[in-house]
Design a protein around this nucleic acid. Structure first.
Lengths: 116, 116
DNA sequence: ATATCTGGCATCCTTTAGGTAACTGGCATC
DNA sequence: GATGCCAGTTACCTAAAGGATGCCAGATAT
């Protein structure tokens, strides 16, 4: 009779890993922003226009959080007025398949709801 | 000069699909609960024990939302006291690959953070 | 000259998510 | 006969997320 049940421990681990992911990409906006930037919208206002309904305040806050988590890179160019560019990091690419799955499921779900 | 730029429209669609998904599985708890139930925890208290830190109130609320979105099924058996069982629906299975990707990324991310 | 663009920041406010604690009512256990 | 288990509910409260509005300063476009 082992003290540790390996399957239970593994199950608990899975949930913890999932929660780690959710901790990084929580909220309504972070993933949509990531996608918008990845699509090539590098300027603050372009991102705002791509992510419908987001305010500058929220966008600003979220971009900072994403930068801290090394998912986006912010570059400021010494023009006048300064040009600011956001790009996704190479680390952000590791989220690709996950995000694509989320997009695919959303499409599927939307179609399913429409049928009812 | 076409009025509609198909790539732009497609890009906007992707973001909308992603937001549809987020709308269904928002918050800290829904996905962890789904995983716990999928792992075979069918009883209310078992689920609560599996999803560390969740309160009965939150679990109760989230289960109702998941039931409404047809991701979990709630069955009551006419015993005394009544037995209640939660299971994931077949529709919930369509989330599988997405969730597995999220778990995988969380594990990878966790390892990466630890290395720093 | 006036309007509009840029990348935000500051302030105020509302909404929602989530947490705390207490309680229920039958049944089984000590 | 007191305690504990089950599956929750209720009321109350806090913290965080998110939204509304106004503003800045330098530049470009009309």
């Amino acid at each position: 009779m082992p003290d540790i049940q390996p399957d239970k421990a593994a199950a608990a681990q899975q949930i913890r890993h999932l929660q780690d992911t959710l901790y990084v990409v929580n909220g309504k906006w972070k993933l949509p922003i990531l996608v918008a930037v990845h699509q090539g919208n590098s300027r603050f206002r372009d991102i705002q226009r791509s992510v419908q309904g987001i305010t500058t305040k929220v966008l600003s806050t979220e971009l900072k959080a994403l930068e801290q988590n090394k998912l986006v890179v912010r570059r400021v160019y010494d023009t006048s007025p300064p040009t600011v560019e956001y790009t996704t990091s190479s680390y952000c690419d590791t989220l690709q398949t996950m995000i694509l799955e989320m997009i695919a499921w959303g499409k599927n779900h939307h179609d399913r709801i429409r049928e009812e």
